[in-house]
Simulated assay, not measured.
Amino acid sequence: MNASTLVMVPARMASTRLPGKPLADIAGLPMIVQVVRRAEEADVGRVVVCTDTQEVAEVVRAHGGEAVMTREDHPSGSDRIYEALEAIDPDGAVETIINVQGDLPTIDKAAIRASILPLAAPEVDFATLTTQITDEEERSNPNVVKLVGTEVSPGILRALYFTRATAPHGDGPLFHHIGLYAWRRAALERFVKLPPSPLEMREKLEQLRALEAGMRCDAAIVDTVPLGVDTPADLDRARALLG
């Protein structure tokens, strides 16, 4: 475990499609605790849940985890983890922050570890994950975000764009973006202070704000897409997978 790396899990109760989902039971544990377990299994750094709900914090602590309270008005998980980071590490000892979404109970520990690999290149501001699309339906599904990139080393793509469209055009693989990020601290601070950008608002993808500002994002290619729990059907699938 690296003391300069912090795994932060943002969680909020105000989900419109699945209210109260951080506390939904999955295989005998609240979903947020399942996510904490996966992050702990990765063994890359201290794990902290960042939440605006006291009940979530209490549940995490009751299961031996660490939780930090944040404001309710954050527009994104990135803003939430930055507030928590400043509160728990005001002296700046933490250099790398891995943002693991609180609705990914099936995330593979190997994927969490892979997210920091692109940061070995000093010119990379933040890193993410991607996997090659094998399901034909996903190629045209706007809910599947595509990463358009170019290979810079084996298993690593430099992200040139993110889109809900089918892209790039022509023959060749398409890549499904996985919304897990590893940030250099300075890059995260810069990002949360930027205003929303035109392409971000058009595509409804906040990572485009960083690209429009000239920040570099590289992506590690992994084998699988973790199940994001957004609906009751997703919750049933997660229960089946982890049960």
Rank of each mutant, 00 (worst) to 15 (best):
T224N: 15
G77Y: 01
L174N: 08
T53R: 01
M13R: 10
L6I: 01
G28K: 11
Q207V: 13
T128L: 03
G20R: 06
I221P: 10
A67C: 05
E58H: 03
E41I: 05
A186D: 15
A186C: 04
R184L: 00
L160R: 11
G64M: 03
D171I: 08
S78Y: 02
A110Y: 15
L242Q: 01
G228M: 12
D89A: 10
G172S: 07
T224Y: 14
R37V: 06
T131A: 07
L29M: 14
R80S: 05
P195H: 13
V229S: 00
L242E: 06
D236Q: 14
A121S: 14
R209A: 01
A120K: 08
L157F: 00
H176A: 15
P122V: 03
E151T: 11
R139M: 06
S76A: 10
A186Q: 13
L85C: 02
R17E: 09
A27T: 13
L157R: 02
G155W: 04
P142A: 06
A27V: 10
E95K: 15
V59H: 02
R202N: 13
R185T: 01
E58V: 10
R185S: 08
A14T: 08
V49F: 02
G92S: 11
I81V: 14
I26N: 01
E72W: 11
D234L: 10
I97G: 08
M1A: 09
P118V: 06
A182E: 06
V47R: 03
G45F: 02
A67Y: 03
L199R: 12
A240C: 00
P30S: 13
M31I: 12
A210E: 05
R184W: 07
T130C: 10
L129W: 04
V35D: 00
Q132F: 00
P105R: 11
E86C: 13
P173N: 09
L104P: 00
T70H: 04
L129A: 02
A42D: 02
E55F: 02
E55C: 04
E83L: 07
N143G: 15
L242V: 08
S115V: 05
A110E: 15
D230V: 05
G65P: 03
L129M: 03
N141R: 11
I178N: 00
C217L: 01
E95L: 09
A67K: 05
I81F: 09
G65T: 08
P173F: 05
V222W: 04
L23I: 09
R185L: 07
I88Q: 03
E66C: 04
L117T: 13
V7C: 08
V48H: 05
T231P: 09
Y82D: 03
I156P: 03
